[in-house]
C-alpha cells in the first residue's frame, strides 16, 4: 500500500468541506456571507466542491454598503451565477434613507451598513447559520474563536460561553432564535489563501492585481477615487500603480503601491512585505482590542 501524504492545502480543503456539509445537514436555514473578497472567493469555491454535483444547498448573502468598488459588484453577480446559487443583496433601508457614507459619518458608516445591516438581513430571512470567511491568523481575538460560533437571539457574541470543539465533532444545536456563525477558513493563513487561489485558478477581483489607478493620499491611507462620489477637497487624483491586499468600502480601503500583476508576484510581494494585512483597514486602528468589542456587538 502506498501512503499518500496530503498537502497542507488538501487538508485545509477537506476540513472546510467537512464543516460545510455538517452545517448543511444540521442547520435549518443556512446562508453563506459573500463579501466578494479573496477569502469569500475561496469559501465559495470550497462550497461548490463540497456539494458537487449538487449546487451548494444555501444562498449567498451580500450585505451591501453601496460603497464597494465597482469591480466588486461586477464579480459578485458573475460568481453567483456561475455557482448556480441564489444571491441575496441586502442594504440597510435606514442607511439608504439617511444617505450614510464614509466621508461624513465615520464609524457610523460601518456600524449602520455592516453591523446593523447584517443583523437585519439575518433576522429578515430567518437564517440560523451564516458562513463567514474570517481566519484565526487575522487578528488576536479571532485566534480563540470557535469554528462554530454562537450568537444569542440579540446576535451578541459571548467569548466566555464558547463551546468546546473536539475532533471533527461540531455541536450545532441551538435554541429557537439563536444563530451561529461558522468559519470554515479558521485554520487558513493569508499565504494559504493566496496559494490556493493560484493552484485552483479561482477568479478574484482585478483590484488585487497592480494597475494604474487614480489615487489620493488621506490620513496616511492611499485611497482610490473609484467614482464621482469621492469628494475632492482641492486634491487632484494621481495615477499610481497600486493594488489592494484587502477589499472593503473603497473610501476606507488603503491601497499599496505595487507592480505585482500576477498571482506569483502578489505572493512574492506578500512574503517579502513587512506589514500585516488588516493594516489597510481603517476599522482596526483605534485600539488593539477593537475587533473584539465590535464582535461582541455583532460585527461579523
Amino acid at each position: 500500500m502506498t501512503i499518500q501524504s496530503l498537502t497542507h492545502l488538501q487538508r485545509l480543503e477537506a476540513e472546510a468541506i467537512h464543516i460545510m456539509r455538517e452545517v448543511a445537514s444540521e442547520a435549518e436555514k443556512p446562508v453563506m456571507l459573500y463579501s466578494v473578497g479573496k477569502d469569500s472567493a475561496v469559501m465559495l469555491h470550497l462550497a461548490r466542491k463540497a456539494f458537487y454535483p449538487s449546487p451548494p444547498p444555501f444562498p449567498l448573502l451580500h450585505v451591501d454598503t453601496t460603497w464597494k468598488f465597482r469591480d466588486m459588484y461586477a464579480l459578485r453577480d458573475r460568481a453567483a451565477r456561475k455557482a448556480g446559487m441564489q444571491l441575496i443583496v441586502y442594504q440597510n433601508p435606514e442607511a439608504v434613507k439617511r444617505g450614510i457614507n464614509p466621508f461624513d459619518h465615520g464609524a457610523l458608516h460601518t456600524d449602520m451598513w455592516k453591523t446593523e445591516g447584517l443583523k437585519q438581513a439575518l433576522d429578515l430571512h430567518g437564517f440560523d447559520a451564516a458562513f463567514g470567511g474570517a481566519r484565526r491568523d487575522e487578528e488576536k481575538s479571532r485566534a480563540k474563536e470557535r469554528i462554530f460560533s454562537f450568537r444569542t437571539a440579540s446576535q451578541r457574541w459571548d467569548p466566555k460561553a464558547q463551546r468546546p470543539e473536539l475532533w471533527r465533532v461540531y455541536n450545532a444545536r441551538k435554541a429557537k432564535g439563536e444563530s451561529m456563525r461558522v468559519f470554515p477558513l479558521s485554520n487558513w493563513t493569508e499565504l494559504d489563501i493566496w496559494q490556493y487561489i493560484h493552484l485552483e485558478n479561482i477568479e478574484i477581483v482585478p483590484l488585487y492585481f497592480a494597475a494604474e489607478r487614480p489615487t489620493v493620499i488621506r490620513d496616511g491611507l492611499l485611497l482610490m477615487v473609484d467614482d464621482e462620489r469621492f469628494p475632492l477637497n482641492g486634491e487632484t487624483p494621481v495615477m499610481r500603480s497600486v493594488r489592494f491586499r484587502t477589499l472593503g468600502c473603497y473610501p476606507l480601503t488603503g491601497a499599496v503601491e505595487s507592480r505585482a500583476s500576477t498571482l506569483p508576484e502578489i505572493i512574492q510581494e506578500m512574503l517579502l512585505t513587512t506589514t500585516s494585512e488588516r493594516q489597510g483597514r481603517a476599522i482596526d486602528h483605534d485600539q488593539s482590542a477593537s475587533m473584539e468589542k465590535k464582535k461582541q456587538e455583532g460585527y461579523f
Binding site: K140, S141, A143, K144, P159, S288, A289, E292, K293
Partner: peptide, 8 residues
C-alpha cells in the same frame, strides 16, 4: 500569543 482583552 495572549488573546482576548479581558484575559490580557
Amino acid at each position: 500569543v495572549d488573546g482576548l482583552a479581558a484575559e490580557r
